[in-house]
Write a protein that binds this DNA or RNA. Structure first.
Lengths: 342, 342
DNA sequence: CTTCATTAGAAAAACGTTTAACAATCTCGG
DNA sequence: CCGAGATTGTTAAACGTTTTTCTAATGAAG
């Protein structure tokens, strides 16, 4: 069913008739070794199917070429995209990725963090859980390896981070809706304690304000980020005497609930009302009419994350101040938004 | 920005006033050590924030407590579910997971496999790519650690595997459609070279046959598994003089293409035709009417995979024959299938 | 008291690499 | 022909654990 034990560098050396140091140097392209011996060594390694023992290598060299990827919620399609890109980029750079899913549970997150520490990962990429960071910042601040936060920042924590400019995202939605003439705009924002949701709302509000439109505070629905909450909020909004002409859902679970509510009410998009959502939803192209969304630049975020982290790693994590990088979202117009009927 | 270097077991020993052997024994609960010293050791470890160096430990002990997870396509929502479950179960069993995505590219797959070998993962969980296995079986067969195939099997490869019973899956669809009185049943099957697709088709055919219905071979669309192929196949089927009354799409990309085609044709489900798909699609509840699907038991597959693999690992990968475990799919009836109009 | 088991702890070897320090060989001008 | 570099290869130490072997201490039995 499976092969025998793997050869060590000593066996390669013996077969090639050289010392282990020579084998090591040839295989790592470090130090000088003659053409002749290089060939002999490579042939021997090939023949034996030699695969260097990563543990031994890391123990001696101090680098594991492993990156820890700690995700708050794998089921979130947006995070999945990030994971996919990060895995690809890491692998291309010669790093392996240990994947951890905390499922929004701070306890799991903490266990995983301890594990990554024991593994001596060369770097840690963290999409932190939403809650429970009040007393635990030290766990991240004192990480012995370079770390970087993605998508979500933690207030008061001095660590590199790469996020979407969520204020700009809200503003983008505002401008689009204003262009279409909407005045009665509702927001399903999720939890008001969550920084991202606040930023998106702020962006929307300020974007409208700069166009001379004021956001009706009674049309801001706050709760949590579940699909059920989105559904309930939508039902309330749709029941208002003066129904909003447009609804902005700040998260993909909320959008799902919103769409379900609209379908149940028998309303049609965009004739009865316009809908704008966040993120490239996997099914965004399927829903008729296509969803108008503001998208987060996931590929760019992944690239920036990896390049920042890798440079910290090779710099020997220089002590210069943490970088907070914000990337710009984009508007994708499809059929779910239309000019308000006058 | 980050803490200093981590303490070694020697520093813990010195602080506790004992030898390193005693520290090791206490921390691993192996060997005898008095209550008193145990407390001293634990206190010292706690105080220093000691985290054992995984590489050193593996080098000496021979076990890494790492599992390799090599996925053919992370973007596939079904595989994602498997990844999620496997990560959770592994973590609970004290194993870390190195995630690799081959994106259906045999070359990437091979590189990843070599990496897992170098890492000396204790076990490998592989969802193999669809193609390119003709000459490369040895790479899996000669793996020095226990390996297990998930979801897809490789013909002629003697390795543990856990898959859905895809013939039963096809049969389930057949019985449901027959119960509803359908006779003109079409299949969008993807690539006929793919074992899974063939099994599902076989199941459908034999399921219908056992009810006395013969499947019209002209209504079997074969191509690849892309959404575009699904769309094109659907357009052909919908253009037939005698439109099928039900369509079975054997994969979630194909279903997406099918739904898009139906929408473009302006047809309505299930009034104009019934649709049955495979897998729990993330948006299956969103689409109106809900999709009737045959689901693969992903959680059970993950559990079986992990428990089988872990027992192989602790057994010292006993040489008894490879196990091929097949798990049963289930039918979930929603609104996309209806009795045929007589 | 001595002797012998029994036990708790310490000392040291080993795991498979990398790499610093060293040795050997060659090149070549004087 | 000699010796000073330059070049190529080797020897051995080190990385941080676990684990085997060994020692010292304790207590019971004779």
């Amino acid at each position: 069913m499976s092969g025998g034990p793997l050869p060590t560098i000593h066996e390669v050396a013996r077969l090639a008739g050289v010392s282990v140091a020579t084998v090591s140097k040839t295989l790592n392209r470090s130090g000088k070794v003659s053409e002749l011996l290089q060939e002999r060594v490579n042939a021997a390694a090939q023949k034996l199917g030699y695969a260097p023992h990563a543990s031994a290598r890391s123990l001696r060299s101090g680098a594991t070429r492993i990156l820890g990827l700690l995700v708050a919620d794998l089921a979130n399609p947006y995070f999945l995209k990030l994971v996919e890109s990060i895995e690809r980029l890491s692998s291309a750079a010669g790093y392996s990725v240990i994947l951890c899913n905390s499922a929004e549970d701070p306890e799991r997150e903490e266990r995983h963090l301890a594990m990554l520490l024991s593994q001596r990962a060369d770097g840690a990429i963290v999409i932190p859980t939403r809650r429970g960071w009040s007393g635990r910042q030290a766990a991240l601040a004192n990480l012995p390896m370079p770390g970087i936060l993605v998508d979500r920042r933690i207030e008061g924590l001095d660590l590199d981070s790469v996020t979407t400019d969520n204020v700009a995202l809200g503003r983008l939605a505002a401008e689009h809706l204003d262009d279409l003439g909407h005045r009665r705009i509702a927001v399903i924002m999720g939890s008001p304690e969550h920084q991202i949701a606040r930023h998106r709302l702020d962006g929307l509000r300020s974007g409208l304000a700069s166009r001379g439109v004021t956001l009706d505070e009674r049309l801001i629905e706050k709760d949590n980020f579940s699909e059920a909450a989105g559904h309930a909020a939508a039902m309330r909004l749709l029941g208002h005497a003066q129904r909003p002409t447009a609804i902005f859902a700040t998260n993909n679970h909320l959008s799902l609930g919103l769409l379900r509510a609209i379908a149940e009410r028998g309303l049609s998009i965009p004739d009865d009302l316009s809908v704008i959502a966040v993120d490239e939803l996997p099914w965004a192209g399927l829903v008729r009419p296509g969803m108008t969304v503001v998208t987060q630049p996931s590929e760019a975020i992944a690239e920036t994350t990896i390049s920042t982290l890798l440079s910290r790693i090779s710099e020997g994590r220089a002590e210069d101040a943490a970088r907070s990088i914000q990337l710009q979202p984009a508007l994708v117009v499809r059929g779910s938004t239309a000019a308000v009927r006058t």
